[in-house]
């Protein structure tokens, strides 16, 4: 009975889809963190994560083990993202809405080109400390492997950490205050500028975790490895409402599962299309996303 459920095709799809969906949710979470802190949609999120993942994971060529390499990625991810905020994003906060978008698009082009110049376009396959062969139940494969279990676990762990940081620590309170009411926070003596930088840093670290986890997928590590994931992450974040971390996770999982089902029962080429159609439909019905409240216009 249980064995039947564990190896059932739909159940497997849901399990596998959830694994990918949690990763989509993780990418979406990075976008949400940056958006909440600074009202910038980071179009270079994918390449930034890719870049620092390369920096860390290529250390495995120099005899670092997987965990050390991953830790380097995350640390560099934090520093790199914080520096990006200081150097190229800060000058644009009070400019037109499109300026930071354009700058981050420039960053996108730059980082992918530099990565391709340094590491070439040939994918690398970091050796994961986990097997990618699915667990078996009475001789039939289930939907999860040790590797995908690790991927889900890592993503959920980092999300929990972020949730605890923002909701249960005084630093988190300050972070939220500087993002939501910068003027008031300044009056209260909070150093808003630094906290916004910290917000970007945290998003960069989370992005690096996503990068490391995704580099263990069959596609491996390549300069454009996060392009598709970024689009899906954006779709998840936008459906969730860009302001809601929980919304990002839930929509990420929904998208992951839906895409897995389409892959399995229909045609893998249609999966991206369906995600975009889903986005257009949701935005037509609720332009502010599903998980955020409608805001009234100031007249």
């Amino acid at each position: 009975m249980i064995a039947n459920i564990l190896t059932n095709r739909i159940v497997n799809d849901i399990a596998g889809g959830t694994a990918q969906g949690v990763i989509i949710g993780l990418v979406a979470l990075c976008l949400v963190l940056v958006w909440r802190a600074t009202r910038v949609l980071n179009f270079a999120q994918g390449p930034m994560a890719m870049f620092v993942t390369y920096i860390g994971m290529t250390q495995m060529d120099h005899h670092a083990n997987f965990w050390v390499a991953a830790a380097i990625s995350v640390a560099v991810g934090f520093i790199f993202s914080a520096l990006t905020e200081i150097v190229i994003v800060k000058p644009l906060y009070h400019k037109a809405e499109i300026n930071p978008i354009v700058v981050m698009v420039g960053m996108f082009t730059l980082l992918e080109a530099v990565a391709s110049a340094v590491w070439t376009n040939i994918p690398r396959y970091p050796t994961a400390p986990f097997s990618s062969i699915n667990f078996q139940s009475e001789g039939n494969p289930t939907g999860l492997s040790p590797l995908s279990t690790f991927q889900i676990g890592a993503a959920l762990a980092i999300m929990t950490l972020v949730a605890i940081l923002f909701n249960y620590t005084s630093l988190g309170l300050k972070l939220r205050a500087s993002a939501l009411a910068p003027e008031v926070s300044k009056l209260l003596g909070i150093r808003v500028g630094r906290l916004l930088t910290l917000g970007w840093g945290i998003a960069g670290a989370v992005g690096a975790v996503a990068g490391v986890v995704i580099s263990l997928n069959p596609g491996g590590l390549a300069p454009n490895m996060l392009d598709a994931m970024f689009i899906l992450g954006f779709i998840a974040a936008a459906i969730g409402g860009l302001d809601s971390p929980l919304g990002a996770l839930v929509s990420g999982i929904v998208i992951g599962v839906v895409m897995q089902l389409i892959n399995d029962y229909w045609n893998s080429n249609y999966a991206d299309m369906v995600a975009v159609v889903l986005l257009v439909v949701v935005l037509m019905l609720r332009p502010q996303g599903i998980f955020t409240k409608n805001s009234t216009r100031r007249v």
Binding site: I235, Y270, P287
Partner: peptide
């Protein structure tokens, strides 16, 4: 453009990007 008219800058940018990424799949597979 119809949903686009109700969207603010970043949403619009992301949505149009998603459209451009997905569109080549239409002639390729549909």
């Amino acid at each position: 453009g119809m949903p686009a008219t109700r969207l603010r800058g970043p949403y619009l940018a992301g949505m149009t990007l998603a459209f451009a990424v997905a569109l080549p799949y239409v002639p390729q597979s549909f």
